[in-house]
């Protein structure tokens, strides 16, 4: 239904809260919502995860397909990530072809996973030059109460780490676990009332400004960054959220690795 009409009032309200170092739902600046991650929840997927962050709920499902490798990389498989914000997930999501936002989400999640090197594309080779696996990560929104980026990224890596290459079904050998060597984690921040907060909910997204997404791997290596929406930020602001991201990514990595 487009942008809510209350946005100016909401912005003022969020500004007042920020001035007192508060958030609308009582969280502190770098505090995330209650989180749960479940794996193996989709019977038809070769790997799957459900992530719940407050009222935000998403699934990620892993499917594999056979494909012919690119001529310049005959022994490497492929990786594709898509994110769907179907109208099921919120009154502001319209039916129709993928929105620019959902394409951005898919691509940002994809970059974090791809660039971390958590999947060695050579592990996906079946017959060099002829047959390789394509890994498809489908991120799917059930309920959008904000910060779909982090929910999708977390569900994607959790699903990936617990997926099985279906060799038997495709008649190309035995089923085996997909080797995933690393755990890239995304943390997203949104400027609300003039300061950045972690894990913005829908209200903070509507009444906020720019957002920044950081994906960190082992040893706090940076694998992907994205600035979205209108707004400016300073080097010191960025340094501050990078510090917060390092702390939170490490916590989330522990959760994913213990699944």
């Amino acid at each position: 239904m487009g942008q809510p009409l209350v946005s100016e009032l909401l912005r003022d309200h969020l500004q007042e809260l920020a001035n007192r170092d508060e958030r609308a739902d009582g969280r502190t600046q770098w505090q995330g919502r209650d989180l749960s991650v479940e794996i193996g929840v989709l019977e038809r997927a070769e790997g799957s995860a459900k992530v719940v962050m407050g009222d935000t709920i998403v699934y990620a499902g892993i499917k594999f397909q056979l494909q012919t490798p690119y001529p310049d990389r005959p022994d490497e498989g492929g990786l594709m990530t898509s994110a769907e914000l179907r109208p099921l997930a919120g009154r502001h999501h319209e039916p129709g072809p993928p929105s620019p936002l959902s394409i951005e989400m898919g691509r940002v999640v994809d970059r974090g996973i791809r660039e971390s090197g958590c999947i060695n594309t050579k592990d996906l080779c079946i017959i060099p030059g002829e047959k390789v696996w394509q890994v498809i990560i489908d991120c799917f929104a059930i309920s959008d109460d904000g910060n779909m980026f982090d929910a999708f990224a977390l569900a994607a890596i959790a699903a990936l780490q617990n997926s099985t290459l279906p060799g038997e079904r495709f008649d190309v050998g035995e089923d085996r676990p997909l080797p995933v060597n690393k755990t890239p984690i995304m943390c997203s921040f949104q400027k609300v009332g003039g300061r950045f907060v972690y894990d913005a909910n829908r209200e903070e997204e509507v009444g906020g400004d720019e957002r920044i997404h950081i994906t960190l791997g082992e040893g706090d290596h940076v694998h992907s960054l994205q600035k979205g929406l209108k707004g400016v930020f300073s080097a010191s602001e960025f340094a501050e959220i990078m510090d917060a991201a390092k702390v939170r990514c490490a916590e989330l990595r522990k959760i994913v690795d213990s699944l």
């Binding site: 239904m1 989709l42 019977e43 038809r44 009222d55 709920i57 109208p87 099921l88 997930a89 919120g90 009154r91 059930i142 309920s143 959008d144 109460d145 829908r202």
Partner: peptide, 30 residues
């Protein structure tokens, strides 16, 4: 109530089927 942001919702597990339905509205028709 499986879709907390919707005005109404329900999920059904029926055998291995799993289906989620959500309702938004009544709202302005545009």
């Amino acid at each position: 109530g499986v879709v907390p942001v919707a005005d109404g919702s329900a999920s059904m597990r029926w055998g291995t089927n799993y289906v989620i339905a959500a309702v938004y509205g009544p709202m302005e028709a545009h």
